[in-house]
Structures are given as structure tokens and as C-alpha cells.
Design a protein around this nucleic acid. Structure first.
Lengths: 243, 243
DNA sequence: CGGAAAGTTGAGTGGGATCAAGCCGCGTGG
DNA sequence: CCACGCGGCTTGATCCCACTCAACTTTCCG
């Protein structure tokens, strides 16, 4: 189809030679102004973790947060009846585990969707460091605040069309922000994951992809997606939200 | 019906003679150990605010968070098409505005449902104080973390029955935690608010209340609700969530 | 090559939305 | 005082979107 789009296979080979992990979060915020070495002792590099492996399991005791360096993940909760429910998808730059702080227990399992590299930070140490580094405290506040309201995929969208359109546009934004092609990329999650996230039946998601393609909105082939008529998708998705 | 249940009318008269507002948040956490006077300069008492009045409007610049002392409120977002969507309900002890930190702009309007008293805290000052008061920082982290995942009323519940049952049980828990009767209280929000929150049509909510009553689960009369068969409601609501 | 999981497609159904009408409580003004 | 209007709430009739069930194809991995 096109040239440089997000592709898990290609990308994961480049993962190993990446630069220092917490830079992307902290440098831009000026955190390192205060003491560059201070964060070094906090960070623990984790990975590579392969598709399907758990980072945390629902109910695990909370002790650390983690920054996604490369790869994508999903958060999954199971309710009492054992039904699985995808809560969110995570991409490089996202921070995992913030929802676990209040209870001290992880409310969701987090599972890698492709090959993943993380930086883990002991939370007690990070919060202690934040007392001395106002910019870090501020960063944490903003990260947590951002996650409020982001949790589910149907903030205001009601119909299946609206939800899928909003989901695709959210993915597009995230890829663009990461420096990849905005309108042409590869999904890392299965149709079932998407369905679970959007609270639709897998069959419905499948039908929607076909119909969007028939209507000229998308070009889809397996997990490869190209947004053809972005504006019409935006018109469908009423609310701003995303993945 | 019964004796001491949450009743907006009675309660609001007692509001004026209440004790110092931030104590409920801070004392129990040991924050005041460090310096009791420090928080005094931060807090600004607001209210009484009457039903229907706005605390903040969607799009307002963010500068402060607020602790609900008395009364109940709702957060409402409007999407591009102008459809209103109730995001959450707030009760005494809840903290408002945390979702606005990341963008610096309030994503929702907050509207009083009955007579409300607040304590407002300048956020720049609070976060600055948090640098010197570890317990306060911790409290803020936990408050924000708690709001992640709490945002919408259908975390895992799918059918209308499940959602309403979960909503009612959530309300029950909150009333109980505030020291009111757990199973007998007065709703402060309209049927339309509930419908919007649960993403159901108002007609559906109305029918559900009637059916729950017919089945002996509830006793409803206007906004007065009594949970008759709590266990059966719990069996209906699969996921833990609430209001 | 074979088995399993993921994905697609079709047919039928039902839950909740929509449309429409009427009721009730309340404030307003004549 | 009653008439009126309005908004919240209820109830009924109908419709349609998305779920379910079922069969089949494709892909993935051994």
C-alpha cells in the first residue's frame, strides 16, 4: 500500500538499539534539570516481552509504574462472571499502572500485543523523588489526570459506527504523535480485542470494517488499515476520544 | 417509609454549622501533622450553591480543585453535536476538577443537583504545598488514581438491568460510607440524568424502575428509593463499579 | 499437514431506542 | 382562586440496530 507505516515486525527489531528510556518523558518536561542521575537509579529496563505475555495480572500488588518504550499493550479486566473486558490500549509514551495507586492493587491485567520494552519505576521511590523535583511531581499529576476520562472507548459515542470511527481516529492520532504515518498503519490488536474494547460483538466489528471499506472510508486488509476519507470518519465520530 | 435516610432538604439546613471542611480529607491521612496552618491559607469556602447552578463550565480554564462538603453534583460533557452526556455524580468527600489538570481546561461542566457547599483549593498552591507534605502528595496521587476507571457507568455492565442495578448499588455504598442509611435514600438526580449517565433512554430507565419494583427488588416513589432485595441486585450487577 | 484460534458471512431475534400521547407537580400570572 | 404552561416522568406501540447462533474460510503454529 504506502511507505512508512507502523509495523510491529519491523519496529521490534529496532527496539534494542533505542536511546535512554525515560528521556522521552522527562527531558521535555525539564525534570532532568534538577538532577539527571537521580532518575537513573530509579529506572529498571524491562523486556523484550513477547505478544501474549502478561506484564501484570489483575489483583497483583502494586509497587511500580512503567513507561512503555516500544510496543503496544492492552489492559483487560474480568468481572465476577469471568467475562473479559478490554479497558484500554497502550502505546509508547503511555504510563502503566497509575490506576493501581489508590487501592494498592492492579485492577486490570496488562498484556503485550506485540514485542514490548518497558521502563519500570518503583513508585515509592518516584513519589519520594517527586518531592524534590517539582517538575516530576507535575508530570505525574498530569499523567494521572490525562488517564481520567480516557478509560473507556465510548465516551459519547453511541452507535457502532461512531465507536469504530472514533477508535480508528484515536489510533491515527496516536500513531501520528509517535512520528508514524497518520493514516496508514497496522493494528496490533485482534478484532476481538477491538470488539471487547468498543463493547461490540466481534461479528459487528467485522461487518463494520467491511462496510466502511465498501463505502470508501477505509482500505483494510487484515490488520493493515488505511484511512481514505478522514473527514467523513470525523463526521461520524461525534466525541473527541480515542484508544 | 423509614427513619434516617439521605434527604437533600433536611440536610442542607444543617450545612452551615458544619466543622472545618478539609479536615475530613486531611486529618485522617495525617497531613496536618506537618503544619496545620499551612492548609488554612489554601482553602476557600464556597457556597451555598443552589440546584442547577454551574460550578464550572466545560472549557473553563483550570486553576483550582474543590472538595465537596455537602450536596451532590453532576459532571456533564457536550459533544460536537450538542448532545449532553452525564459523566459522573459527585458526593461529599469527592474532589472535583482532577481531570482538568492535564490540559489546563475543564473537560466537563459541573452542575449542582441540590444545595452544595465546597472548599476550593488553588491547585498551584496545593501542589506546591504537596512538595513539603508527603502525605498530601500521596493523598493527591490516590485521589487521582481512584478517578481513573471510575469515569463511566458501564465498566463491565452490558444490559440495561445490569447497569441500573450497579448504579443503585453504587449509590447505596456511597450513602453508607457517608453515614446514611445504606438501603433507603433519596436520589438527587433526575431520571434523565440517570439515563444519560447509564447511556439509556429516559423511557428505559422509567420502565426499569417499574419492573424492579414489580419484581420486589426495590420500593420506589419518585426519587425516594429503598433497596428491598440487595442480594438479587448484586447478582444482576456483574461488575463492581458504581456512581 | 493438521488442529485451533481468528475472522468472515448469513439468517433470525430481541432489547432498547424512538415516536407519540398523556399524566403529574409546580410555578406564574391573570 | 384557577388557568395555563412547562418540565419531569410514565406508559404504550413500533422499529431497527446490534447480538446471537451457526456455518464456513483463513491464518497461525505446531
Amino acid at each position: 500500500m504506502a511507505s512508512r507505516y507502523y509495523n510491529p515486525e519491523q519496529r521490534s527489531s529496532a527496539a534494542s538499539c533505542a536511546s535512554c528510556p525515560y528521556l522521552s518523558v522527562c527531558v521535555s518536561e525539564g525534570v532532568l534539570d534538577s538532577d539527571p542521575d537521580e532518575l537513573d537509579v530509579l529506572v529498571e529496563h524491562v523486556g523484550p516481552i513477547h505478544a501474549g505475555q502478561h506484564i501484570v495480572r489483575q489483583g497483583d500488588a502494586f509497587d511500580s509504574i512503567a513507561l512503555v518504550r516500544v510496543g503496544t499493550l492492552k489492559s483487560v479486566c474480568v468481572d465476577r462472571e469471568g467475562r473479559e473486558q478490554t479497558q484500554s490500549f497502550h502505546m509508547p509514551g503511555d504510563v502503566l499502572g497509575l490506576a493501581a495507586i489508590s487501592e494498592g492493587v492492579h485492577p486490570c491485567s496488562v498484556i503485550a500485543l506485540d514485542t514490548v520494552m518497558l521502563c519500570r519505576f518503583s513508585f515509592p521511590r518516584v513519589s519520594e523523588a517527586a518531592l524534590r523535583m517539582p517538575a516530576l511531581q507535575n508530570k505525574l499529576f498530569r499523567l494521572m489526570s490525562r488517564d481520567i476520562g480516557r478509560t473507556t472507548g465510548l465516551t459519547g459515542n453511541r452507535t457502532a459506527d461512531e465507536r469504530l470511527a472514533a477508535f480508528l481516529l484515536g489510533m491515527a492520532d496516536r500513531f501520528e504523535r509517535l512520528g508514524y504515518s497518520r493514516d496508514h498503519w497496522q493494528l496490533t490488536m485482534s478484532r476481538m480485542d477491538i470488539a471487547s474494547y468498543l463493547r461490540l460483538a466481534p461479528e459487528t466489528v467485522s461487518r463494520l470494517f467491511r462496510r466502511f471499506q465498501e463505502e470508501g472510508l477505509l482500505a483494510v486488509e487484515g490488520r493493515e488499515v488505511e484511512l481514505v476519507e478522514r473527514d467523513r470518519l470525523e463526521a461520524m465520530a461525534s466525541s473527541a476520544m480515542a484508544a
